[in-house]
């Protein structure tokens, strides 16, 4: 980890319309994440962790305040610029894997590289490298329905990591996995964090995930309750 902030949020507020009024999901969040962090937003449902992750991932915009992600102000990005940021610099891992069921493991992992217009030979090497990181080189031609939950999530990690993004955002990545698979996945991500210096940012309330985090940011009702750095 370096002392080089790549994500900062300043007085971040997010409001959602609710009936005739508004629901305040984030109530002035000030945060800073350095390159190579393995951090987590922890809190119960409705605490605002996913909302914050979506804003950092340029999937949503703040109502007030600003989020600077890799030097870019999220609230001022056009749809095209936001897509560009996600395409080049961010990786996503979801709770329910969200793999494309009709495509093979190879094709699922290859997809982000197609958007980045890599050549076929580059794609071949990069996909195989990513599958090697997650230990799935023997499953290149399998399709997601033929894989276990743990294998699917490992494919999702490979897909998020294949383009070597600067930041990976993982929303409840172990929610659908058993304990053994959860530890397996977390070890893989921890290994990638160390080897590739990729920043990992989790949204979770899973104790297993929390136990792996190097930094724990507890959110309650849209506010930071405490921010713990684990040595």
């Amino acid at each position: 980890m370096t002392n080089n902030p790549i994500i900062t949020t300043e007085k971040l507020i997010k409001k959602f319309p609710m009936g005739k009024g508004e629901f305040l999901a984030l109530k002035g969040i000030d945060l800073e994440f350095n390159e190579g962090e393995f951090a987590g937003l922890i809190g119960p449902s409705g605490s605002g962790k996913t909302t914050l992750l979506n804003i950092i991932g340029s999937l949503d915009t703040p109502s007030e305040g600003e989020a600077m992600v890799l030097g870019q102000p999220v609230s001022q990005l056009t749809a095209r610029q936001a897509a560009q940021l996600r395409k080049e610099k961010l990786g996503f891992i979801f709770q329910s894997y969200n793999l494309l069921a009709v495509h093979t493991v190879f094709e699922n992992v290859e997809f982000p590289l197609l958007l980045l217009k890599y050549t076929p030979s580059q794609r071949q090497k990069m996909v195989m490298d990513a599958l090697e990181w997650v230990g799935l080189t023997d499953k290149v031609n399998s399709k997601p329905p033929a894989l276990s939950g743990g294998e699917c999530q490992r494919v999702a990690i490979a897909r998020a990591m294949v383009k070597k993004p600067m930041v990976v955002l993982a929303d409840e990545p172990t929610a659908n996995l058993d304990a053994a698979n959860s530890h397996n996945i977390l070890k893989t991500m921890e290994m990638l964090n160390k080897e590739l210096k990729t920043t990992f940012l989790f949204a979770t309330h899973d104790e297993k995930v929390i136990s792996y985090l190097h930094r724990k940011i507890f959110l309650i009702d849209g506010k930071i309750d405490r921010d713990e750095l684990i040595k």
Binding site: G57, L59, A79, R80, A83, Q84, L85, R86, K87, E88, L90, F92, N98, L100, F111, P112, L115, R159
Partner: peptide, 14 residues
Amino acid sequence: YGEIGIRLAMGEEK
């Protein structure tokens, strides 16, 4: 919806 959501998350333009 699912497939489209993924594609957008990966950075494909709308």
